[in-house]
Design a protein around this nucleic acid. Sequence first.
DNA 1: CGTGAAACCGTCGCCCC
DNA 2: GGGGCGACGGTTTCACG
Lengths: 166, 166
Amino acid sequence: MSAARLDPIDRKILAELQADGRMTNVELAKRVGISAPPCLRRVRTLEEAGYIKGYHAEVDSRELGFEVQVYAMVGLQSQAESDLSEFEARCRDWPLVRECNMLNGEVDFILKCVAPDLSTFQTFLTGDLLKAPNVASVKTSLVIRSAKDEPGVPFEVLEERLSRMA
Amino acid sequence: MSAARLDPIDRKILAELQADGRMTNVELAKRVGISAPPCLRRVRTLEEAGYIKGYHAEVDSRELGFEVQVYAMVGLQSQAESDLSEFEARCRDWPLVRECNMLNGEVDFILKCVAPDLSTFQTFLTGDLLKAPNVASVKTSLVIRSAKDEPGVPFEVLEERLSRMA
DNA sequence: CGTGAAACCGTCGCCCC
DNA sequence: GGGGCGACGGTTTCACG
């Protein structure tokens, strides 16, 4: 596991910045128990090593007028690698598609889509997704309500596992 | 739509902070074309009004040792409101469950789970999820690979729609 | 919304362990 | 190697026009 290269302070930094990405460096340093300069050096190292891929404001999608969230299960005709990656590239170009994951089992991909309203989504569904080459089947499920939407990873679980291994 | 209360500068602020949540306020002000003090006032207002729910570092889950992502489709025995919200509350307590959305159609909930390894997930699956009261069926799909994972909403689509309405 | 000023913070060089 | 101290320049954040 690559996380083995990180010491407890690095993991604490990552957990703190995942919880509050706009925290000032001095506040972060205080929380992880070192002074500001080495703390900032660690953050820069974590960014350059790719452990931190970016920082994002979490916006309220419904307040902003994005009232529709849909999961789309997509089956392809060909699962040749070139066809898979061609479909993935298409997904990256569609702004409505926020997540695209390849799955095992009967369905090939699951897409999470966000749209301002149903008609915008249906225009995308019939105009883009269903017309894309190699798409064999699409089953969509509307999100009725969202109970939990936490970005990132559960650091608690990692710490628990590391302490079990020690 | 509540987004109508926001002017173009506010929407630009939200889009910029979604793309880079650690941008300094002066940089943000420059990009949206106003000076720093009113820009900061707008950000604070957006935060207090709930348009911005938080800021998060995006961490590389695989680099950190979270090698397993699973979608779990959950069917319940009872769909009474009290039973639905009881299940949702349980999901909020499970750190492995990052997203929990209620769906229309044959399945009741879709859960996105993140775990360090398969055995951690299976411990959760058999020990917690399948044993939870009211859970009738669980179908899991492993994520083979992730092609896109963008947090947030597609502001481009919103701007396009607003300009069509104007 | 902009200007100016004061406090704070990010950042660097240097020294220490 | 990493951590701490001090100082400079930029930033945040006031009060005010």
